[in-house]
Every structure is written in structure tokens, then in C-alpha cells.
């Protein structure tokens, strides 16, 4: 049977694409599979077991860093979302004004500057303030993560505001709503998907950030990623696979939610 001519077919492309998908997922799948390994090896299968998950849950240090990571992500992304929402309201749908470019540059700086540069910059400042004030709490990490999350939270909120039909607010004003009422009853409810998306992006970004945390943290302030980075130098056991798998599962949940929130229109 003759193969039908298809305009979109390019020979070999399908094979390369599938190879790419396999290459992308194989290492992750192997990592997940060996988290359930009975023996200590990460490459020789010895039967199914949950012992490494038990080990991870029993590990006080893993529990501490996990809770710290989640707490930090929650606080930083909440703060970043509030600040980004205000900033998005300030910078969208206004006539151009002086300093607008500077505001955009400031907001997007964490996206453009390499993380390691931001990291050492914060290290310098934090070291100085620590010496001056003696304060060594979580405040530094919260501030650093919040700043880093702002551009990520800002993007979907701004996008949502820009695609929002302006005549809806005009219609509200026409129907006797004040500025505050129009915001409360029209703009804000319509902005919610953008705000939720922004919060989730910020949460994932804060949870994943390793470089900035590495440079800013004081002793005993390890997060899950910096703890893992430290452990990777040593001979690792499948316990690390188990931790990574749980972490992956959490990210996957958030990303799926994010997809559902952003793909739902109107």
C-alpha cells in the first residue's frame, strides 16, 4: 500500500522527536523506579520495597528541610503574588509614563541576571547586614525568594489583565459602579485565574531555587534542594531517589493544576 503524501511529514523527524521524549523521561523514570528498590543499589533491581521512603520519613533532617522549603515557598510566593498583583495593576492599561521602562527592568531583573550573580550579590549584602545587626533569621531567605518570585508571579497576572476586555469595566461604570466597586465586582473576580497561576508559578520557582538559597542561607537553614545538593557529593542511597520522587510528585501536582487553571478560558 502506497503511503499517502502528507505535507507535514518530514522524514526522520518523528523518530528524533520520540527519541527526545525517551531521553527526557528515561532518567526520571529510572530515578523513580529505583526509589522502590529493595537493595541499596541504584542500578540493579532487587525487588519492590518502600524501605527508602520509610528511611526518608524517619530522617529528622529531611523532615526539617522539607517543612522549611514548603514554608518558605508558601510565604515567599504569597508575598510575591500580592506585590506582583499590585505592580501589574500599576503597569498595565495606563498611558505610557516616564519610568515605566525602569519599572519593567526592575521587575524582570531576576529573570535576566544569572542566578549565581544574584546569589553572590545577596551573599555580600546579607553578610554585611549580619555583621551590622547580628540578625540571622529566615528574613533574608524570605526577602530573597520573594524578590525572585515576583517576575514569575507578575507574568500571568499581567497577561490576564492585558487580555481582559476593558469594556467590561466601562460597562460596570455605566451601570453606576464606582472605581472601587468595579474593581471589587468585575476586575478582581476576572483576575483570579491569573493570580492563582502567578501564585503557583512563584511557589514552584521558590521550591526549586537552589543557587540563591545556597548563598543566602545561614547555618541550619538548609532547604530541600540545598540539602540534596550537599548530599549528592557523598555516596547516595536510594533514599535520595525516594526524596526526589516525592518532590517530583509535588511539582507534578502543581504543574497539572497550573495547566488546568490557565487553560480554562473565560
Amino acid at each position: 500500500m502506497a503511503r499517502q503524501f502528507s505535507i507535514s511529514r518530514l522524514p526522520g523527524f518523528g523518530a528524533i522527536a520520540l527519541l527526545t521524549f525517551v531521553l527526557l523521561y528515561l532518567p526520571i523514570i529510572i530515578l523513580v523506579v529505583f526509589s522502590f528498590n529493595e537493595n541499596q543499589s541504584q542500578s540493579i533491581w532487587g525487588g519492590f520495597s518502600l524501605r527508602w521512603y520509610e528511611a526518608a520519613f524517619d530522617n529528622q533532617q529531611v523532615r526539617d528541610v522539607s517543612i522549611r522549603s514548603l514554608w518558605l515557598a508558601l510565604v515567599a510566593s504569597s508575598l510575591a503574588t500580592i506585590l506582583a498583583t499590585l505592580a501589574a495593576l500599576a503597569t498595565t492599561r495606563v498611558s505610557r509614563f516616564k519610568g515605566q521602562t525602569i519599572i519593567y527592568a526592575l521587575i524582570n531583573q531576576p529573570l535576566m541576571v544569572p542566578e549565581v550573580v544574584t546569589g553572590i550579590a545577596l551573599l555580600i549584602v546579607v553578610a554585611f547586614i549580619k555583621v551590622q545587626t547580628g540578625y540571622t533569621g529566615m528574613g533574608y531567605l524570605v526577602l530573597a525568594h520573594t524578590a525572585f518570585c515576583i517576575p514569575f508571579a507578575y507574568l500571568p497576572i499581567r497577561a490576564r489583565l492585558e487580555t481582559m476586555d476593558r469594556t467590561l469595566e466601562q460597562a460596570a461604570a455605566d451601570l453606576y459602579a464606582s472605581h472601587v466597586q468595579a474593581f471589587r465586582y468585575i476586575t478582581l473576580p476576572l483576575l483570579v485565574p491569573g493570580i492563582v497561576a502567578g501564585f503557583m508559578l512563584g511557589f514552584v520557582v521558590s521550591l526549586d531555587t537552589v543557587v540563591i538559597t545556597e548563598f543566602v542561607k545561614s547555618a541550619g537553614q538548609d532547604t530541600l534542594p540545598t540539602y540534596m545538593l550537599g548530599q549528592l557529593r557523598r555516596a547516595v542511597t536510594p533514599e535520595m531517589n525516594a526524596i526526589a520522587t516525592l518532590f517530583l510528585a509535588l511539582s507534578l501536582c502543581i504543574v497539572t493544576l497550573f495547566f488546568l487553571v490557565t487553560s480554562k478560558r473565560g
Binding site: 500599576a90 519599572i103 526592575l106 521587575i107 526577602l143
Partner: peptide, 16 residues
Amino acid sequence: KWLLATPALIVLVLAA
């Protein structure tokens, strides 16, 4: 309206 951006800008100036 631009005043709404100031809290974010303060954080960014402090930490970026």
C-alpha cells in the same frame, strides 16, 4: 496608579 508598584519595587531594589 503607579504607586501600587512601589511595594514590589522596594523588595526588588532591596534584594535584586
